[in-house]
Amino acid sequence: MIRRISPNHDRLQSLNGTWRDINGMPSLVSIPGDDRIVANLGIADLSFLTRFGVKGAGAVAWLESQKLEVPDRANTWKPLPDGGIIARLGLTEFLIEDSLHSSFALRLAEACQSVPAKVYPVLRQDAAIVLCGKAIQDLLRQTCSVNFQALSLAEHPVILTLMVGVSVTIIPILPDRYRIWCDGTFGAYLWETLLTIAQELGGGVVGVDRLI
């Protein structure tokens, strides 16, 4: 397996945590004290999850031909069987992220070796973050101008916006669990900025074992 490195790898290295390779990527799975932080405001790096992107006028039909249930409205998401996410970004772009138990991304990448017209694969190398805990809204209020509390989570909204100056995709999974993706080259900056604020709010880094 190819050794993959997360955009946030260096930031996490300096912490006194336990590591494990997940999907070929060294990942921080636990850190002393994170059991206390996770209920208040935890931030964890989920860049190790496998991802696939595709866009184009033919993307919906092609994904359906690959036996995926596609969200029918722009900027909404659906859970995948076995725990992943398929998000419709705008009208004709999709982000598919696996859980630890699924492998849609790999399968779709292989199927993409020969795609029909108007189907364009998008290589995803995101910095992926999860926020958890009851103080999430305090963190969001300091970093993003979208009113998340006015959203109806039952409609599975996907928000494409700016957060601390960086383009991000945000999915509120639950009121105390938010997923955030951004271009990997901004990953270190986003992580560092959110972590500083989270720490001020009494939160901090948590290992992924706390969440998955």
């Binding site: 260096d10 100056g165 960086v166 270190a188 900025t193």
Partner: peptide, 17 residues
């Protein structure tokens, strides 16, 4: 305020450091 100044780093940043 805090002053947010976005910054980009290549994946090889730590190697350069």
């Amino acid at each position: 305020g805090r002053g947010f100044t976005p910054e980009q780093r290549t994946p090889l940043h730590s190697r350069h450091v």
